[in-house]
Simulated assay, not measured.
Amino acid sequence: MTLPLIPPMLATPGALPAAVQDARWAYETKQDGQRVVAYLEGDGSVLLRARSGEDITGAYPELRPLGSALGGTPAVLDGEVLALDAEGRADFQLLQSRMGLAHAPGKAERQAAKVPVHLVLFDVLHLGNKNLTSLPYTRRRVQLERLGLDGPFWSTPTALVGHGEQALQATREHGLEGLVCKRLDSVYEPGVRSRAWIKIRNMRSEDVVVGGWLPGRGRLSGLPGAVLVGQRAAGRLRYVGNVGTGWSEAERSQIAALLGAAATDVCPFDPVPRVAGAHWVVPRLVGEVRYSTRTRAGLLRQPSWLRLRPDLAPEDASADIPDARPDPLS
């Protein structure tokens, strides 16, 4: 690849900018999919890299024609791969059937026929022989829109300048995941979680790492009754609670198989939580959970399982957690 490798810029969780600052921000719908950076060499090829840097091009064969969408002009584009439900909304559970197939071309082709994806593009990082990351958002956005990238499996949604409160309310009314606020004068910061981009989720959720599990009882005998989850803080995996609801029967069986393959005698949490009957696993499985609030000790209240996040690495599940000792209770 002759184009520069550019890791994606990340948004920081937060709230809407103050009303007096509203006109200095652009607002884009927060999409519920897999983040990708697309590399178009200008020779008809396209390379898709996940947020982790992994080459996932083979998982999405319907996006191959994007490689010739700009003719001979090389480009690096930032976007999100979505799978849409019957109402045209992004559905991450549908997308999961498409993920992880980068090295299984036959299966990827079959799944593409059943669950086609759509790539939404929201930034251009390199164009021709010029790196655009040092340009402000407004200038990059103009460049992106001039490219006219709207095809059978990709599009360039509009961004709204100002009117953040109305934009956020519209995402809630339409059942969308949330909003991303981008400062108009912000440069693109590769690989940085920046305050120049703020993400607002319409549901309170967190990415967590599974570090153990508790056996189920009754009809759940032989399956996990709950998983023990943590988040990275100050260089260690901190325990933040146990999650025993939110799964379908199929999901619980799937997670049971993954936990069995990751069994270990070593507790990955620091400090070790006092949880009777716990089985420990190598902390490599990432999931997303919904919760009501967080305790002063950093534990999640009333957490329920939302989904697996195979697109994230364990290091991505981090949080600011109070350094509470002695060891937390379950």
Rank of each mutant, 00 (worst) to 15 (best):
R219C: 02
G244K: 04
L223Y: 00
N242S: 12
R232L: 11
A234F: 10
G241Y: 02
A233C: 15
A250S: 14
W213A: 07
A226N: 05
M203F: 14
L228E: 01
G218R: 08
G216S: 09
V227C: 06
R236F: 05
E251I: 02
D207T: 12
R238G: 07
L237Q: 11
G235Q: 04
A233D: 15
L223P: 03
G225H: 04
D207K: 08
S248V: 00
R238L: 12
R204N: 14
I200R: 12
N242W: 08
P215S: 06
G235L: 13
E206M: 12
V209Y: 12
E249G: 03
D207V: 12
G212V: 07
V209C: 11
V208A: 14
T245R: 07
G212A: 05
D207G: 13
V227D: 06
G211I: 02
Y239D: 09
E251P: 08
A250R: 14
V243M: 04
V240H: 04
E249Q: 11
L214H: 00
T245L: 08
G235E: 06
G244P: 09
S221N: 13
N242D: 15
L220G: 09
L237D: 08
A226W: 06
G212N: 05
G211N: 12
Q231K: 09
S248C: 00
V227R: 02
G216F: 03
P224I: 04
V210K: 10
A226C: 00
P224K: 05
N242G: 04
V243D: 10
N202G: 15
G246A: 07
I200S: 12
V227Y: 06
R201S: 13
R201T: 11
S248K: 06
D207Q: 13
N202Y: 05
L228M: 14
V210Y: 05
G225W: 00
S221V: 05
Y239M: 10
G218K: 07
W247D: 08
G230Y: 09
G244W: 06
I200P: 12
E251W: 00
D207H: 13
R219G: 11
V243G: 03
D207L: 13
L220K: 06
G225D: 03
G246H: 10
E251L: 03
V229R: 01
G218L: 09
A250L: 09
L220E: 05
G222P: 04
E249H: 03
L237W: 06
E206Q: 15
T245W: 00
Y239I: 11
E206R: 13
V209D: 11
V209W: 10
R219N: 06
I200V: 12
G216Q: 10
L214W: 09
G218N: 14
